[in-house]
Each structure stands twice: as C-alpha cells, then as structure tokens.
Simulated scan of single mutants.
Amino acid sequence: MDFNPEFVDMVVMIKSTTELLRTSLEEKAINIHLNLPTNLILYVDKRMIEVVFRNLISNAIKFTPKQGTISVDTTEKENLYLFSVTDNGVGIKEAHIDKLFRIDSTYSSLGTNNERGTGLGLILCKDFIDYHKGKIWVESKHNVGSKFYVSIPKSYH
C-alpha cells in the first residue's frame, strides 16, 4: 500500500468509523464514549489510519460482552497525540500480549459471541503506525479488559 499522507480531521474520521460499526455496537448493546476534542487535524495517511481505528474499535466490540463499555480517548503530549481504545471485555492473558503485533507468531481468539478473527489485524495496524513513525501497544488484564494505545507524532520527516 502506498503511503499518501494528507491533513485529516481525526475526530471526524473516528466518528465516521464508529458509525460504520454502529450495528455491531447495537447488537451487543455496547455503550461507546468518544472523549475527543472538537477537531484534531493531523498529517496522516487517511486510509491507513482508518484501518487502524476500525480494527481497534471492532476488536473492542468483539471482545466486550453485551452491555459493556468502550471508550476512545485522545491526549495531547509535547510531540505527539496519544489515542486509546479501552474496553471492559475479556482481556488478554499476559502470555499472549507479546504475540499480538508479531507476524512470526500470530494469535487469535474467539470474541464474546464466538466472532472469529485471523490474528493479522493488529499486525497490519502496527505496520501502518510504523509508517507514521508512531507506536502501538496494549495494556490488558484477563477478564478485566484491554486498553490499546496509538501514538502519532505531531510532525515527522
């Protein structure tokens, strides 16, 4: 995939991604909270970043039980913006966390409604975030939930 950065309003993009997933949210009666500024313009490859957020939010839906909660947050740091997608879902066992972003040891598990995945989505997300000179990582506790982080530099060259 070619890397074609442009100025993108991240808030509009995250809201439209959430709308694409609205049916899945409603099927499981999951509440989603968007804790975002009014707008946030970043120089990113829109297609890549949409894939990242669609994957993170759809994974949160997949692994969150009915009537659960997901939140998408952003924080401005000195040189970057930090985004997080948090759920109160099944979480990830510590032994599996290291496998999530590695092509040589894919990991996949069933969602709370037996939804299937390939284990490749997060590897693709890492690749796309690497193009942006950012980072992606997770904090998770089994049976408590997960918090996926994405950092994107304010500017990169």
Rank of each mutant, 00 (worst) to 15 (best):
N4G: 00
F7T: 06
V8L: 08
D9Y: 07
M10R: 14
V12M: 08
M13Q: 10
I14H: 10
I14S: 10
K15Q: 15
S16G: 11
T17P: 09
T17W: 08
T17Q: 08
T18E: 09
E19Y: 10
E19D: 06
E19V: 05
R22L: 07
T23A: 04
S24R: 03
S24A: 06
S24M: 03
L25R: 08
A29G: 01
I30A: 01
I30R: 03
N31I: 02
H33A: 06
H33P: 05
L34D: 11
N39A: 15
V44I: 15
D45R: 13
K46P: 12
K46Y: 12
M48P: 10
M48F: 14
M48D: 15
M48A: 12
V52D: 14
F53A: 10
I61A: 02
I61E: 01
K66W: 01
G68S: 01
S71M: 11
V72K: 01
V72L: 04
V72I: 13
T75V: 14
T75Q: 14
T75L: 12
T75R: 12
E76P: 10
K77R: 14
K77D: 14
L82E: 13
S84L: 13
T86E: 11
T86W: 07
T86V: 08
T86S: 07
N88E: 09
G89C: 03
V90M: 04
V90I: 05
G91S: 00
G91E: 00
G91C: 00
G91K: 02
K93D: 01
E94Q: 03
A95S: 00
K99I: 00
F101D: 05
F101A: 05
R102G: 01
R102N: 08
I103A: 07
D104P: 00
T106I: 15
S108I: 05
S109G: 05
L110Y: 11
G111T: 03
N113R: 02
N113V: 00
R116G: 14
T118K: 13
G119A: 13
I123P: 11
D127I: 13
D127W: 12
D127S: 10
D127H: 15
F128K: 15
D130K: 15
Y131I: 07
H132P: 11
H132M: 12
K133Q: 08
G134R: 04
W137F: 04
V138L: 04
E139P: 07
E139V: 12
K141T: 11
S146V: 00
F148W: 03
V150H: 06
S151E: 15
I152K: 03
S155G: 10
